[in-house]
């Protein structure tokens, strides 16, 4: 689904990631952890084609990312739902329109009932007409998750999705991601919240990866 072979990424001379090989199998659940600045966000951006590797090879859905045109990358992103810590919205549109945005740009109709069901599932059913600036941090994260999955993506990538949330809200979001994984979605969450990882591991079989010294390693049992 997403495969990296000996991938490296450099920011203007300094190598941030080096010799990374990883395969995200369908239906798998991964956590990616590591200290701030270790390259977790960069790794995720490589996984959805926002950045190209400076060395190595990345394959998205069996297609080498370097061979993808800009349109191909756009189409590929429709199969990958992304949730950022600082999730951005179109502030001039109501929440429902923001959540339905992937359908809008794909030229697909957004069924009103499906949209309502999705907003209800993430606990935002009563905020469909609210504008993004009116939402709390937790509501924004759940809205971002709803937007990420409305196209029925195969993979969900979440970059510090609970970074601004309290523990209760973090658990709620984690529960939604676990539910999605049980539906067959591949999930990769970048986080430094070890408590969240422990909580998830008590519910599902999640692999934990750690970025250390520019490389990705499978984390030990110390988590």
């Amino acid at each position: 689904m997403i495969a990296l072979e000996n991938v490296a990424y450099s920011y203007g001379g300094g190598e941030l990631l080096s010799d990374i090989s990883l395969r995200l199998a369908p239906g798998s659940f991964h956590f990616l952890t590591g200290p701030s600045g270790a390259g977790k966000s960069t790794f995720l951006k490589l996984c959805y084609g926002e950045l190209l590797p400076t060395a190595g090879r990345i394959t998205l859905f069996d297609r080498e990312v370097r061979g993808l045109s800009r349109d191909d990358i756009a189409l590929t992103r429709r199969r990958i739902g992304v949730v950022h810590q600082d999730c951005q919205f179109l502030d001039h549109l109501p929440l429902a329109a923001n959540v339905a945005l992937p359908l809008t740009v794909a030229g697909k109709p957004s069924g009103a009932q499906d949209l309502t069901d999705l907003l209800t599932w993430v606990g935002l059913g009563n905020l469909a007409d609210a504008r993004p600036p009116q939402l709390s941090g937790g509501e924004r994260q759940r809205a971002a998750l709803a937007r990420a999955i409305i196209m029925g993506p195969d993979v969900i990538l979440a970059d510090e999705p609970t970074g601004n949330l309290d523990w209760e809200m973090s658990l709620r979001l984690l529960t939604l991601l676990v539910e999605l994984n049980r539906m067959g979605k591949t999930v990769l969450i970048a986080t430094h919240d070890l408590n969240l990882i422990r909580q998830a591991k008590s519910q599902i079989a999640a692999r934990v990866l750690r970025i250390t010294k520019r490389k990705i390693q499978l984390a030990g049992a110390d988590l």
């Binding site: 926002e50 349109d71 756009a74 992103r77 919205f89 179109l90 992937p102 740009v105």
Partner: peptide, 16 residues
Amino acid sequence: AQVIRVLRLVGARDSY
């Protein structure tokens, strides 16, 4: 620019 970033993130093509 932020609008464009969001549109890109959700899979909008340049032509769109």
